[in-house]
Simulated scan of single mutants.
Amino acid sequence: MAKDMSLLWFSGSPPCLRVMIALEEKNLQGYEQKLLSYEKGEHRTQEVRDVNPRCQLPVLTHGDNIINESYAVCLYLEAQFKSQGTQLIPDGPAQQALMYQRMFEGVTLTEKIADVIYYQLKIPEGERHDSAVKRHREALTTELKLWEGYLEKMGAGSYLAGKNFSLADVVIFPCFACCFRFGLSAKNYPKLADYYGLLKERPSVEASWTTNWQTSPPWGKDKLKDL
């Protein structure tokens, strides 16, 4: 149980999803949580500013400690509760090296997904350029093919850093979940689709998924279908 923890989060947010998966993997259920609405601008209230001046979610509070960035939250949870629940950082140097490498490659993956999916949301209509759309889509296609190759090399039934589930999966899976949610073709990326299906059935993902992802289709639900 995690009665001395609280979480501020958005529904449909990959960063929030990864934190909730990490909490489940470390057997830290029972924490206080508050769902905020992005559409209503509830992340810009004084309540959020007091714990994160960037007005971003998730925000995890553990006792007197406040952690804002989702990667930092996941690393913190593993460090503080290392002997509890799933071991998310492997012991071997080679396994650790690969796990950290894949984990932080997720930053680039996230940026390239955002460039495609949120371009129309962030850029005013009069300032959008077809060339930018094309460039972003080509960059994301190249990135996804790279991850497809990683998984093919790992072999069937493997996780991102080996045969065991790790912190790399905690932070990267929500990125791929977002891609398939926005219409990514399983036919074009069969290894990614297999990986997505494998993790979708994991208890920590199932528990977090039902509360985190909105049941209605997202805006731009077919945005990645042609990649």
Rank of each mutant, 00 (worst) to 15 (best):
V107I: 15
K153Q: 12
K221G: 01
T211A: 14
S131G: 05
I172E: 02
Y150W: 07
A161N: 04
P90R: 01
S131F: 10
V133R: 15
L28K: 05
Y76Q: 03
D50P: 09
L140P: 00
Q84C: 03
D115L: 13
V48R: 05
N188M: 09
N212F: 08
E138H: 12
E125P: 03
A186R: 15
A2H: 10
T211W: 11
L192F: 03
I117Q: 06
S216L: 07
L98V: 04
F180A: 04
D130G: 14
L57S: 07
G197H: 06
H136P: 08
I172Q: 03
D222A: 10
S11A: 15
A79H: 05
Q95F: 00
Y195Q: 03
F182S: 11
S70Q: 08
L8Q: 09
T61H: 10
L109Y: 11
L146P: 00
Q84E: 03
A193H: 10
D169V: 01
G106S: 12
E78Q: 04
R202N: 07
A2F: 12
P58W: 01
T215S: 14
E201H: 10
C55T: 10
R181N: 11
R181H: 08
S166N: 04
L35D: 09
T110W: 14
F165P: 02
Y71Q: 00
K221H: 06
E69S: 09
Y38V: 10
Q214P: 05
I66S: 06
K145H: 09
E47G: 12
Q56I: 07
A79P: 00
